[in-house]
Nucleic acid binder design. Structure first.
Length: 948
RNA sequence: GCGUCCUUAGCUCAGUUGGUUAGAGCGCUACCUUGACAUGGUAGAGGUCACUGGUUCGAAUCCAGUAGGACGCACCA
């Protein structure tokens, strides 16, 4: 074995071997266990969130694989509609100064395919570096042929089931990206804006109760005035009651608007009159529906004013009874310029009453960052009501469980007021909607054009053109768990591996993805008995990985840490280039540079994949974000090094030794470490069952470092270094060193796959285990028969005595190597037995040259004293003891015991406690009291024995 | 506004269904080149468990409220 641990070399070598050997593919038999990976963007790269989630999935898969289950970790990537199209558009603009329209649809999508071919391997390469044991043989892409087929199938079936419809509706329109987006893709931002109070003159000589000839309406968007269809007041508002049914004249346009009554109007807000613009505001749209108002659209798709308004009824049919003329000087003016112009014009007409500061929420596109415009357009929608009802039931009845549970509330809340889902996007990259139009605008849905023609009896002579729009990326993602397994074909993979067992994902996509997967899967996937199938039984929701001060990691903050840089290390210069190199704003770049230099003055040292993964596991407590801490990573890198060196020790002491066929005898220490190991396995099994990877990681860490390295390895030294040791005992020690290490490697493997494999390959053969890879080795079953309670107690005794001696050494400043004589006063029969069995261990590890037992009360020379339970641990050292100081120490010790005795006496004297607490608890407290009382007596005697 | 979560050692976090003298890692202090490992070893210091009240024999843990923080949803033009 190499004297130093070199993660990079080990990790790349073993991954290649595993992949070549085909270990990631599902086994031929066993109980199926499957996980579908949340497909990362095909052109994306690995970030900390991926590293976190992939590590968790990998641990689950490796654990289940070792347990003999037939594991499938389905891998694949997502075409990520808008995101990918934007990247390529930006590239095209930067490199050739062209837009996608310069190229045309086909040439542009070819460019995207080229870009995918070029950069699509980045993330899969990074996943390999992370050790993910996904089944690469069946890797999928949401736009591969089979999956595209599944998408068309799903669309057509939903349409046939009446769950997809097309219509002219008010949707969130991104004027920059020129596409509709769903409600979820809109982010509301707080801004300080204005409220313009405008006067709308009353028509026909009507006056208000106050004798005014106008109504005042307040608006945050004066430019939408051009599309107003009514003015609304509250039905019980006395001020305006008489005006209901009368008319106002819309300024600038001279359109007659009815005054309508609707309880939605807040009488307290502004004047209590609201302008209603059904084609440019969602609330007004609803009111328009209630009052059959015309939808008057005045904006085009880039957000500029139309030369002439378009008017529809609520069903989307053109409506001819409204004058659609608009003032000529606004035509083609951008919405925000038009706002200024209109305010100015109203001011000139003395129709602007006042302008007020006003805080409001502005909707922005999550991709473009531009202000979203509610716009009346023809779109495809998924009717969600029925789907959502079933999806809610599946979680309510426990078919699907969220871990942690609290996310179910969030899921329910969203599901219960879900709106129909706009699934069409005016993009070029994605699944084109399988609908064809004739010259008159009639549409025909089918799996392909031929089917659409056949279904509707259209001859080849009828000209058809496919819908230009593509589907929302999440439409295809929603089919992921079964689309990847062969659906709509009834494949063996689908039957075997669906439903999947668990979905591991971030809470940020519960609505985007998880909820929609549940809706679609319940609709499409049926069990043989006809009942609906869930996509997964459990949703394990991970927190976000934040930076060390709790900030979200983002490029603009310059606090992103690439997981690969933590694995392989990166120089400061390279890190600076990465963070600031492509920054457009030099000021920001400077700030980030400064921050980076401060945080990583020497770049980032390599830590290896195993250390990174182990850090992620140890921080993975549920329901909480993680503040990343480089120090933790260093700690677990050290842990890897510790394992490496422990293995070196074991191999050094076993590899070269010939087995001389002696029947091994197992020492107390051997039985003890076996017992501890079994307890550790039990803890890990429980932790896996609860998705508590932090607890599992802690159990592995503590067992290896505290039990195996700190105690067991030390306990083997006296035996292994003893020339005259009993060969049977030697054999037992060597066998245990190896066997426990070998098993430990297996239980650590799901968390740290590489270092465990590398060491296991050397250790396993020495234990007589033959296997190709630790990956395929069986998961150890916790064997309670091996939990030797007596050994646990005996070693605990040994540890207590050793700790007492060390404590004396430290307190008295005695060199660690200085041999000491130990006196044990007042030993019980158990103490005597334990001493006899472990005399050698005690002598060597505590570095003693003699141990003597004396009866209680025996007078001995001045000695430093400690208590190990009831046993007095004494180290005679007349010349080092200052009786006065020692008395002080003992009396403070006695004070502590007195306090404890007082506390316990009080508690036990409380009838409430003794009467109501469980007997076991009372007994425990009594025991404590007795121990404390004995300790006090012993201390008193020690005190009295000291000279004044 | 509605809902969820968080507040424990200097820092990052555990604390398994109420029963300890509240733990870990890092950091800190002192000592140690002991033949696996100085990416190490040994011994320590360090906490009124945000605050207030309640339930209970017993509260870091359960309940209510207060303060601070995070997030989700919906918002009155």
């Amino acid at each position: 074995m190499d004297t130093t641990y070199k993660p990079a070399e080990i990790e790349t070598r073993w991954y290649a071997e595993w992949e070549k050997a085909g270990y990631f593919a599902p086994a031929d038999n066993g109980t199926p266990y499957s996980i579908a990976i949340p497909p990362p963007n095909v052109t994306g790269s690995l970030h900390m969130g991926h590293a976190f989630q992939h590590s968790i999935m990998d641990a689950l898969i490796r654990y289940q694989r070792m347990r003999g289950n037939r594991t499938l970790w389905q891998v694949g990537t997502d075409h990520a509609g808008i995101a990918t199209q934007m990247v390529v558009e930006r590239k095209l603009a930067a490199e050739e100064g062209k837009t996608r329209h310069d190229l045309g649809r086909d040439a542009f999508t070819d460019r995207i395919w080229d870009w995918k071919a070029e950069s699509g391997g980045t993330i899969t390469g990074q996943m390999r570096r992370l050790g993910t044991s996904v089944d690469w043989d069946t890797e999928r892409f949401t736009m591969d042929e089979g999956f595209s087929n599944a998408v068309r199938e799903a669309f057509v079936r939903l349409y046939e089931d009446g769950l997809i419809y097309r219509g002219k509706r008010l949707v969130n329109w991104d004027p920059a990206l020129q596409t509709a987006i769903s409600d979820l893709e809109v982010e509301n931002h707080d801004v300080n804006g204005h409220l313009w109070h405008l006067r709308y003159p009353l028509a026909d000589g009507v006056k208000t109760a106050d004798g005014l000839d106008y109504l005042t309406v307040a608006t945050t968007r004066p430019e939408t005035l051009l599309g107003d269809a009514a003015v609304a007041v509250h039905p019980e508002d006395e001020r305006y009651r008489k005006l209901i049914g009368k008319f106002v004249t819309l300024p600038l346009v001279s359109r007659r608007l009815p005054v309508i009554a609707d309880p939605y109007v807040d009488r307290e807000f502004g004047s209590g009159c609201v302008k209603i613009t059904p084609a440019h505001d969602f609330n007004d749209y609803d009111m328009g529906r209630r009052h059959n108002l015309p939808l008057i659209n005045v904006l085009d798709t880039v957000g500029a004013i139309l030369p002439e308004a378009e008017c529809y009824d609520i069903g989307g049919k053109p409506r001819a009874d409204i004058d659609t003329a608009l003032p000529a000087d606004y035509a083609g003016v951008d919405r925000f310029d038009a706002r200024k112009k209109i305010v100015l014009a109203l001011e000139e007409l003395d129709l602007l009453e006042r302008i007020e500061d006003h805080k409001l929420k502005v909707p922005k596109g999550d991709r473009s960052g531009k202000i979203i415009e509610p716009l009346l357009t023809d779109q495809w929608f998924v009717a969600t009501e029925k789907l959502a009802t079933d999806a809610i039931a599946a979680v309510e009845n426990g078919d699907i469980e969220f871990v942690p549970k609290q996310y179910e509330n969030m899921y329910f809340a969203w599901m219960r007021n879900i709106q129909d889902w706009c699934v069409s996007r005016q993009l070029w990259w994605g699944h084109r909607i399988p609908a064809w139009y004739d010259k008159d605008g009639n549409f025909y849905v089918g799996r392909d054009e031929a089917e659409a023609r056949a279904a509707h009896g259209l001859s080849d002579a009828v000209e058809l053109r496919q819908d230009d729009d593509v589907l929302d990326t999440w439409f295809s993602s929603a089919l992921w768990t079964f689309g990847t397994l062969g659906w709509p074909e009834d494949t063996a993979r689908l039957r075997d591996f669906h439903p999947t067992d668990v979905l591991v994902t971030g809470f940020d996509i519960i609505f985007f993805w998880v909820a929609r997967m549940i809706m679609f899967t319940l609709h499409f996937m049926k069990n043989p008995d006809g009942s609906a199938q869930v996509p997964f039984k459990t949703v394990y929701v991970t927190g976000l990985i934040r930076d060390e001060s709790g900030q979200k990691m983002s490029k603009s903050k310059g606090n992103v840490i690439d997981p690969l840089d933590m694995i392989d290390g990166i120089s400061l210069d390279a890190l600076l280039e990465k963070r600031c190199g492509s920054m457009m704003q030099p000021q920001l770049a400077e700030k980030i540079g400064k921050r980076t230099r401060k945080a990583f003055p020497e770049g980032i040292a390599p830590h290896g994949t195993d250390a990174l993964r182990f850090t992620l596991f140890s921080l993975a407590s549920t329901g909480r974000d993680i503040n990343w801490d480089m120090k933790r990573l260093e700690g677990y890198r050290n842990f890897c090094n510790k394992i490496w060196n422990a293995a070196r020790y074991v191999l050094m002491n076993t590899e070269a030794q010939q087995s001389n066929n002696v029947a091994p005898v197992y020492s107390l220490a051997d039985r003890w470490i076996q017992a501890r190991l079994q307890q550790c396995i039990g803890t890990i099994d429980r932790a896996f069952g609860q998705y508590r990877f932090d607890r599992a990681a802690t159990a592995v860490y503590e067992f290896i470092w505290n039990d195996y390295c700190d105690w067991y390895v030390e306990l083997t030294k006296p035996v292994l270094l003893d020339e005259s040791a009993d060969p049977a005992l030697l054999a037992g020690t060597r066998a245990t060193l190896l066997a426990v290490l070998e098993t430990t490697l297996r239980i650590a493997h799901p968390f740290m796959p590489f270092i465990t494999e590398d060491i296991w390959q050397r250790v396993a053969p020495l234990t007589g285990i033959n296997g190709d890879s630790i990956m395929l080795a069986p998961w150890p079953a916790a064997d309670t028969a091996l939990v030797d309670e007596a050994a646990l107690d005996d070693i605990a005794w040994l540890q207590a005595v050793i700790l007492a001696v060390r404590s004396i050494r430290a307190a008295k400043n005695i060199a660690p190597g200085e041999p000491l004589k130990l006196i044990l006063r007042n030993p019980s029969a158990d103490d005597e037995r334990r001493l006899a069995a472990q005399r050698l261990s005690l002598l060597k590890i505590a570095r003693l040259n003699d141990i003597e037992c004396v009866a209680a009360g025996t007078e001995i020379p001045l000695a430093a004293a400690e208590l190990a339970g009831d046993l007095e641990v004494l180290v005679p050292m007349a010349d080092l003891i200052d009786p006065a100081a020692e008395k002080l120490r003992i009396s403070s010790e006695m004070a502590k015991q007195n306090k404890e005795i007082q506390r316990l006496t009080g508690k036990l004297g409380n009838a409430g406690f003794t009467g109501k607490a469980p007997a076991a608890v009372v007994e425990k407290e009594k025991l404590k009291l007795a121990t404390a009382e004995r300790a006090l007596q012993t201390l008193q005697k020690q005190y009295d024995a000291l000279p004044d």
